[in-house]
Design a protein around this nucleic acid. Structure first.
Lengths: 230, 230
DNA sequence: GGGGCGAATTGAACGGCGTACAAGTCCCTG
DNA sequence: CAGGGACTTGTACGCCGTTCAATTCGCCCC
């Protein structure tokens, strides 16, 4: 028999796989148990509760991010900060459920702590005062998180429609989109947007939107930094 | 008897009250029915499903925002944009559940559409190209949303601990915070932050963090605007 | 090698949830 | 007054997170 005793690592791994495939709403203990070849309740001995498991999974995902050896010096700040933000953005794109979990579970573990400390150090090394470094780091992070909310909702909705499965997975989605378009079409600018990019789905534009906003934010922070350094 | 027939307005109002008091996880159809003096299932005739109800509630809340009569001209852009962002931030503070709903429900209704169109017009009037106006509006909005995630999680956690109610509502919270501090204390910068503001709760700092980041973002957008106008 | 003990797993069960549905009640119109 | 649509109700189903007593497994010591 291939079945050995479970480990929390195995469980967290399986949970992440399930979350990536089925979304936050698709993770439930019975499905997780089946995936692990165990009874659903075996998980509880290792992780205590579903909330705990989600926190564990979130921190594990957060540890995917690779941090350069030493925080960049005063001049490398901007490139390093941008790279960091892009990395987090990519992570949230890979794991859309994470941003939903962030809104409901107060996730903070060793990997997140390491990451936070790194960003803080990066900003202090660049010349920000400690208080400014704190706020600048938070601004960067919350901007990235906010950008992930839309795609997360999109993914959740798509999955829900697919799971209802009354045969017409895409039909319902199209219907909902059409309804949204109808609501939007009352307003001139929104209608113009809709006509401009008629065939675009929700997932295409945000990438450009993200880099545009990120660059603007970095510009603003760089300006602060310039006045602080003087 | 004070019982009359329900209206969807009544239902949405009661749902918002329940959401504000108990959080997103505290809204359930039986409790809502009890609050309305009806059977739980009576709600379904009016709003169809819980998802629908949440979307309705979200749009109703979004309509709380008052938009100045006409979008500001080229010079008033910055003040108007800041005021708008601050207004949305305040709204999300009043209704922390809304940002959670945004991550799971793709909320888009008439009030949100009106608001989006208004912001778009504001940016176009200021001199942004349509494409830039789109991205700048989105950047502003996602930044505000991202800032609301932390407090939302905090509120959700507090409520959950209170509802478990094993007598020690604050004890568990303090325990969790202490645990987080222990994790954080391995890293020098985080430890410094903890020692600096030892008695601060999660809700105090974010306000300053929000205005700091917002100003930086607005600065960056203003710089874009300057180059575009020329 | 056998006995024992803690680690790990199991299946049944509980209470709460969203919601479908058939049956009922109310009220307005012709 | 008869009919029919608007509206409400109670019951029930299936899924969920979690608890718990009972059971099995694996290792260490005598």
């Amino acid at each position: 028999m291939p079945r050995d005793t479970l480990s929390s690592d195995q469980i967290v791994e399986a949970a992440i796989a399930l979350l990536d495939e089925e979304g936050l709403g698709g993770l439930n203990m019975r499905a997780l148990g089946k995936r692990l070849g165990s009874a659903a309740t075996a998980v509880y001995w290792h992780v205590g509760s579903k909330d705990n498991l989600i926190t564990l999974a979130g921190d594990r995902v957060w540890s995917e991010l690779t941090l350069p050896e030493a925080p960049a010096g005063p001049d490398g700040w901007r490139a390093a900060a941008e790279a960091l933000a892009v990395g987090v953005h990519a992570m949230l794109t890979r794991h859309p459920w994470l941003v939903q979990a962030f809104g409901a579970h107060l996730m903070f573990g060793p990997a997140k702590a390491r990451h936070d400390d790194y960003i803080l150090a990066l900003h202090e090394n660049a010349g920000f005062t400690p208080a400014e470094a704190d706020q600048a780091s938070a601004a960067l992070l919350t901007f990235v998180l906010g950008n992930a909310l839309g795609p997360a909702a999109q993914a959740a909705l798509t999955r829900k429609l697919a799971r209802e499965g009354d045969g017409d997975a895409e039909a319902r989605l199209a219907e909902g989109m059409a309804q949204a378009r109808e609501v939007a079409s009352v307003h001139p600018r929104l209608r113009a947007r809709l006509e401009a990019e008629s065939g675009t789905d929700y997932g295409a534009a945000p990438q450009d939107t993200f880099t545009f906003g990120l660059h603007a934010l970095l510009d603003g922070l760089a300006a602060r930094l310039a006045t602080t350094r003087r």
